[in-house]
Amino acid sequence: MTQRQVAMVIDLNKCIGCQACTAACKSLWTDEPGQEYMLWNNVETKPGPGYPRYWEEGGGGWNEAGTALNPGVLPLKEDHGEEIPLNFDEVYFKGTQEILKQEREMGKGANYDEDTSSGDYPNNYHFYLPRLCNHCTKPACLEACPVRAIYKREQDGIVLVDQDKCQGFRECNKACPYDKVYFNYVTGKSQKCIFCFPRLEEGVAPACARQCPGRLRFVGFLEDKDGPIDKLVNQWKVALPLHPEFGTEPNVYYVPPMLPPRFNADGTFDEEEPRVPLEYLRSLFGPQVDESLATMMFEMEKKQEGKSSELMDLLIAKEWKSLFGIPDVKVA
């Protein structure tokens, strides 16, 4: 363990898939040549193949005993989609092309399946899943790096690829079961989310969290007793890691989604079965998802009855700053 571990909790019940986090990250960190296809932060519709497509099937991570890495697959560039320029000049100013389009075919991009629902209407279901590097406690990427270019910072647990040391072997790309390491085809090095460490060092929350208009990303240190992370992860136990079976011990946690009730065949509400099949949620967040959802429902009902709920107040976050349990937090 590092001295401290920074962590994030993402409340999926507030995420509207607006991609403000994606855009915020892109402008700040990945707008250079070679980074066109990189989204260190992305939001994908679940169930769905996600970004890169079918990343969950690509292997990587640790074996069940946690003693060795599982084999992993190199994510394909074309499975990421890409930001492609448009032919503005040809259409608007030169009059040589008829209609506006990307300069080349995009293929199935990072959010191709946006709002593509699963199941049958009116009992269909889908939700948004924002993803970034999990800054794992047992990072498979770090383990896999042949030249020890990847390190986990002692002061905050952020996992980084040292661009001076990386030699582009891409073993980290294969090892990360979340496919959250990207290869820069121009510099020939692997790159990934840096948890906005330059901001964090100044007491400013990462761009994806601070710039989230949904107010749904909590940031703080796991060790801070009674900080928002500790409360949601350890005390209320409503925030869960994604695919805990990958064995990397992620430090990004999710409050799982509760969708509105299903309909019975006659159009009345089905109060028994949740709209998102529990099996599916368990496959994402592990068996603890049942308890998390039960706690959420119970606390929400308390509020409906006019009682108080610390958990609900925490998630409402009347004061925006309360999302960020960073010492000396600065928001501007």
Partner: peptide, 13 residues
């Protein structure tokens, strides 16, 4: 509507 990043977060058309 014609921003290249936002188009890449849809279907490109």
């Amino acid at each position: 509507r014609d921003d290249s990043l936002l188009l890449s977060l849809q279907r490109g058309e």
